[in-house]
Design a protein around this nucleic acid. Structure first.
Length: 154
DNA sequence: GCCAACGTTGGC
DNA sequence: GCCAACGTTGGC
């Protein structure tokens, strides 16, 4: 079972929104980056777990864990002219973008901050994608060793 | 709000 | 297919 990290902006759709959603479940859509899209379409499986990461906020960090309840499926927000993620180039017959469904599994007692994670960038978290320079991926794999170590930080 | 880093676009 | 210009991301 693979582990992932999903970035979200808490002001737009963070762990609080997910906690308040019906069945604590929501579609994870609006990803408009090919590398992230490939992960959603080809690799993320139902049952996988992912860290929910808050970015573009006062205290960036990991807020909790979600479970994937539906593997990659075409992102219909790309077909909706009124949606902010509308993409005229995505053809319903050959969808360009993909979404997944996620359910909130557990909210951490506190945010595991980016600062804390960075403190281990040359140690236990060496090579973690999130910590690499200029990283902008919104969906990325997390190795089992990194996953286990991060859990001990809570 | 700044700005470095990166991805995408489009002219050639 | 190159690469400059542009737009976006995201920490600070």
């Amino acid at each position: 079972m693979a582990g992932w990290l999903l970035k979200t902006e808490p002001g737009t759709f963070g762990i609080e929104h997910l906690a308040g959603a019906p069945r604590r479940t929501s579609s994870w859509d609006g990803v408009r980056n090919y590398q992230a899209r490939n992960f959603l379409r080809d690799q993320v499986q139902r049952g996988d777990q992912a860290f929910l990461y808050h970015s573009s906020c006062a205290v960036p960090g990991i807020a909790g864990i979600v479970t994937v309840t539906r593997a990659g499926f075409p992102d219909v927000s790309a077909f909706d002219r009124k949606n902010e993620h509308f993409d005229a180039a995505s053809d319903p017959a050959a969808p360009r973008w993909y979404a997944i469904d996620v359910q909130l599994k557990r909210r951490f007692k506190r945010i595991i901050t980016l600062e804390e994670l960075r403190a281990h960038a040359d140690g236990k978290l060496r090579g973690m994608r999130l910590l690499q320079r200029g990283n902008r991926l919104s969906v990325m794999p997390v190795s089992d060793a990194h996953w286990q170590f991060i859990l001990t930080l809570e």
